[in-house]
């Protein structure tokens, strides 16, 4: 599925959240939306998902308007972590899977796979509220793509995860890409982006600063930052 944003603008009464945003995400690629807090990332996602209306501009999926597509081909991990606190982890995943039109039998296979991959076997029957924050986030992440969406949106998926879990998540994203899922994710840190993204968009206060491939970005704005730590003196170093 190709997603195309053309001149998308979102204005509130006294504030413009997103201003004339343009980018295209091709099928099967990973696209990063980078920006500080308040740059307009979540608003952009909500417009793409038809949770909010655009003030101007068009958003199309394979040429079709956002409100015309079958929503079950989409997956979404909101920035604010949220699952049903009193529902068991497993029930939670079945519920979200079924809500997206999956059969119980198909779901069982998927749930077994992802629960073991994210090392949640012991928590399977626990209520979500008893889990640690990181584990809750993993459950919610699985819930967002348990129905094998064609297009997956992850809003700040790395925030709050420890390095081990960050790696688990990166591997999962790459695996989903291999399976043909198109992925759009946001981050306020470049380091996660470099390893994953094919293309990206830099957003600042609702305005796009750059949109294109990572290589082009480096060519345009690239700087080499080299840090050397040694007990040599400056003269010795300069003599090198």
């Amino acid at each position: 599925m190709t997603l195309q944003l053309q001149h998308v603008t979102k204005k509130y009464k006294d504030f413009t959240a997103v201003n004339d945003l343009n980018f295209t995400i091709e099928k099967g690629e990973i696209f990063g939306l980078i920006g500080q807090n308040g740059a307009g990332k979540t608003t952009t996602f909500r417009m793409i998902l038809d949770l909010q209306e655009t003030t101007a501009g068009t958003i199309t999926w394979d040429g079709k308007s956002v409100n015309a597509i079958n929503r079950d081909v989409l997956g979404y991990l909101p920035e604010e972590r949220g699952i049903f606190p009193t529902m068991k982890v497993e029930d939670q995943l079945y519920f979200f899977g079924e809500l997206r039109g999956m059969k119980k039998a198909e779901l069982k296979k998927e749930i077994d796979f992802w629960i073991s991959r994210f090392e949640l076997e012991e928590k399977r029957k626990d209520k979500a509220e008893t889990l640690s924050k990181g584990n809750q986030q993993k459950v919610q992440l699985i819930a967002s793509f348990i129905h094998k969406p064609q297009f997956l949106i992850l809003d700040e998926p790395f925030s709050g995860l420890d390095p081990v879990n960050k790696d688990l998540l990166k591997d999962a994203i790459l695996l989903l890409k291999e399976q043909g899922t198109t992925i759009l994710f946001s981050s306020h840190q470049m380091d996660n982006v470099e390893e994953l993204c094919d293309h990206l968009c830099l957003l600042k206060r609702g305005v796009s600063l750059f949109s294109g491939s990572l290589l082009d970005l480096k060519k345009q704005y690239g700087k080499i930052k080299l840090a050397v730590r040694t007990d040599w003196s400056t003269t010795q170093l300069l003599a090198l």
């Binding site: 998902l49 949770l51 929503r71 079950d72 989409l74 997956g75 979404y76 909101p78 604010e80 972590r81 949220g82 699952i83 049903f84 606190p85 979200f96 809500l99 997206r100 919610q140 819930a143 967002s144």
Partner: peptide, 16 residues
């Protein structure tokens, strides 16, 4: 209110 408060609402409203 509790669905909204626990932010499960956004997860739900993407599909419903």
């Amino acid at each position: 209110a509790s669905e909204k408060g626990s932010r499960a609402m956004e997860m739900l409203l993407v599909s419903v």
